[in-house]
Design a binder for these strands. Structure first.
Length: 722
DNA sequence: TACTATTTAATTTTT
DNA sequence: TTAAATAGTA
């Protein structure tokens, strides 16, 4: 067997990982160190060289994208399609198990997956039902509580109130929530994992079957596993399974949603025979960028310890720009982006990163003004759109009448005269008789409701029954098409004015084509409709993707994880924004922010700009911040500070936003420019942030280093220009 | 029931 | 500032 193709492109450490003997292995893979390569080559090595059957290999990732990429790369490496390979997300694999063993898992065969939005609606409905004040019992907090418990593998009956009435209520709500889900055959994301874990835990024979089958367990982004995912893996590994886990403790940025880096340490305890391989050679960035990243992350306490290096060149220095305000910051970035583009570079290879989504606004405005095409990552995904979820809710209700989540969503959408009062009556009945809304509707329509409401409800029930009858023999896409028309959704959105409605109808039509293009994995023995609905929940699709055009990439640092760009801007690098105010006080929160910064820096291949603004308009008011402490953690020899443009030929962007206020052209008054450094007799040194008025009335806003920000009348202030 | 005024809060996000 | 959720009005 010629092993060259598998090994030739690997460095020593990578090779060690790929060819490691059949025992547990932990790979600490730094940013850009070839993590995916190691995973895929390991799979190829096992199959091609060790003669391991593809059947006995299981690979887990966190995102569908990563799973698809891994599958593709393994296929091209082995040069054969590996359909039977179990590669997927934790949720996807758990889902597959539950579909196969729905009976043992205590689920109805046609159970449906609800997404976070459905989950939140369900909780809100419960609160209303129980007449709990949702300003005191915040739905989001309850949702967070429930998911956090599930992520830890805990059911309501495992929890104790500890004498805390607040907690008691939360636990009770958790229990109620679960009851509603169980009654309706609904499974939320965390439930998929928890159920799959319980399925194995409670069915030793079944577990044994899978333990025998899956010998090699490969895990990507191991630092992002939560408790239940890790427990699931351990269960599957048992005594003889061989886990091959790859992660980077320094890139753990999802603690807030249950991820526990500690699993990296726990792994070594749980699998004492495990070896550790560190991948530290980086193939992505210049030495300067890596040194900066290393220097920043060094300030974190609890680490495995790792130092990225490259045998490449130092490259350009990191450029730091201190802007006057967020507009100036955006202007600067856009200027550089324009240069980049003018030099013949591909725009899609540049990215502007920020800490929070709201920061994209100013950038977008300026990009539009500059006529540069861009794409913002994140945002509403296809299957999350209202109209799509409406249509899917019809399909769900047709598939399972007891699905209260779907029922409530569409009972009066489009409006058919079933108002809040009527729904309330149904809810009361449903609660009193512990039955689904569907049954309640039937019962209530025949006795409790008065003529008009009863007719409306009966009409709705008939509509669903009829849709079920009419579509039972149709192909999936015909079913969808039928449902969107019969339900009245299309007509409903046609009436919506503006482009909104048109887009919605287009989306509904798009849903039909999505159904047309959908093929169920023949291995799975669920109905095609259920498969499609699960697919919609599990893979919500892309955010607004304009992939075809050559666009500048705008995204949060979180969503940049795993990506790389020759040109990167880290914008809004100010204390309070990044590190975020909410994490700044808590040491572990600050460390997570620092890891995020590490992620941000290591996205850059060649050129890295870091920008911050002295003044930033946030929540309607101006605020002032120091440059991010993370900037100070970068050795100054790696940095080239870009001084604000000394003499601007064009007038500095004037703040024409305020009405009534005449923005003067800075420079009209002698020496007054935005960004100009000045000295005041009493307040000391500062920077001009803003100016208004003319002649004797001219005033300037100065941010003093020690005295804060003040408006001063020029003719009295006696400012010295510096 | 739909439209408008008012209030409120404001990280990060995948499944 | 602004988006979203809620309350109030036609």
């Amino acid at each position: 067997m010629d092993v060259t193709p598998i090994l030739e492109s690997l460095n020593e450490a990578q090779r060690q990982a790929v060819t490691s003997p059949a025992k547990p292995l932990l790979v600490i893979a730094g940013a850009g160190s070839g993590k995916t390569r190691v995973l895929t080559h390991r799979a190829a090595w096992l199959i091609d060289v060790e003669g391991v059957s593809p059947q006995s290999l299981l690979a887990v990732t966190f995102t569908n994208k990563a799973a698809a990429e891994m599958r593709g790369r393994i296929e091209s490496l082995l040069n054969l399609p590996v359909n039977h390979l179990w590669i997927g997300t934790f949720h996807g694999l758990a889902h597959r198990l539950l579909r196969r063993h729905w009976n043992e898992a205590g689920l109805p065969q046609n159970f449906q997956i609800i997404d976070s939005d459905d989950q939140l609606r369900l909780i809100k409905r419960m609160l209303k039902n129980q007449e709990l004040d949702d300003s005191h019992w915040v739905p989001r907090e309850i949702q967070y509580f429930i998911n956090a418990q599930k992520d830890e593998g805990l059911r309501a009956h495992h929890l104790h109130d500890e004498g805390d009435p607040n907690r008691r209520q939360f636990i009770a709500l958790y229990a109620d929530y679960q009851e509603v889900c169980d009654r309706g055959g609904l499974v939320d994301f965390a439930e998929l994992l928890l159920r799959a874990h319980e399925l194995w835990r409670d069915n030793p024979a079944l577990l044994e079957h899978y333990q025998r089958r899956f010998q090699h367990l490969m895990v990507d982004e191991f630092q992002d596993t939560n408790a239940i995912q890790y427990a699931w893996l351990r269960l599957l590994a048992g005594e003889n399974g061989i886990p091959f886990v790859v992660g980077d403790d320094d890139q753990s940025i999802y603690r807030w949603r249950g991820a526990r880096v500690e699993h990296i340490f726990q792994f070594q305890k749980d699998f004492p025979s495990a070896s550790v391989v560190k991948l530290e050679q980086n193939y992505r960035s210049t030495a300067t960028i890596l040194n900066a990243a290393n220097a920043v992350i060094k300030n974190n306490g609890s680490r495995m310890g790792k130092n990225l290096w490259t045998d490449g060149a130092d490259g350009e220095p990191i450029r730091v720009y201190s802007a006057y305000n967020e507009r100036d910051e955006a202007d600067f970035i856009i200027g550089r982006l324009r240069d980049w583009s003018d030099q013949g570079n591909v725009r899609a290879e540049s990215a502007v990163l920020y800490r929070s989504n709201a920061q994209s606004r100013v950038l977008e405005e300026c990009l539009i003004n500059a006529g540069l095409p861009y794409r913002v990552y994140g945002g509403l995904r296809f299957f999350e759109r209202q109209e799509i979820k409406d249509a899917l809710a019809y399909m769900r209700l047709i598939s399972n009448r007891d699905d209260d989540s779907a029922f409530e969503r569409i009972v009066n959408r489009p409006t058919r005269g079933i108002g809040a009062r009527t729904v309330e009556t149904m809810r009361a009945y449903s609660r009193a008789n512990s039955c689904s809304m569907w049954r309640a509707a039937g019962a209530v329509a025949s006795d409790e409701l008065s003529g008009r409401a009863a007719t409306a409800v009966t009409g709705f029930l008939n509509l669903i029954e009829r849709a079920a009858r009419d579509t039972s023999n149709l192909d999936l896409h015909e079913q969808v098409d039928h449902v969107i028309h019969l339900s009245g959704l299309v007509d409903f959105f046609k009436k919506e004015k503006g482009e909104r409605g048109e887009t919605r109808i287009e989306n509904l039509e798009e849903l039909v084509s999505a159904a047309k293009g959908f093929t169920k994995d023949p291995v799975e023995e669920m109905s095609e409709v259920d498969a499609f609905l699960s697919h919609a929940a599990l893979e919500a699709g892309e955010g607004q993707a304009d992939a075809w055009e050559d666009c500048i990439q705008l995204m949060t640092m979180h969503s940049a994880k795993g990506l790389e760009f020759p040109l990167v801007f880290l914008s809004g690098m100010e204390d309070g924004l990044f590190p975020h105010q909410r994490s700044i006080a808590d040491p572990s929160g600050l460390e997570e922010e620092r890891r995020l910064c590490y992620v941000g820096i290591t996205r850059a291949k060649q050129t890295l700009y870091i920008t911050h603004a002295e003044q930033r308009r946030m929540h309607g008011t101006d605020s002032y911040a120091q440059a991010s402490r993370f900037i100070n953690e970068i050795p100054s020899e790696l940095i080239e500070e870009i001084r604000p443009r000394v003499q601007v030929s064009r007038p500095v962007q004037t703040m024409t936003r305020g009405r009534g206020r005449t923005a003067i052209r800075p420079g009209a008054e002698a020496g007054v420019r935005l960004g100009q450094r000045v000295r005041h007799g009493k307040f000391g040194d500062g920077v001009i942030l803003n100016c208004e008025g003319q002649g004797a009335h001219a005033r300037v806003e100065v941010n003093f280093e020690t005295a804060g920000t003040k408006w001063l009348v020029l003719s009295y202030a006696n400012l010295d220009l510096m």
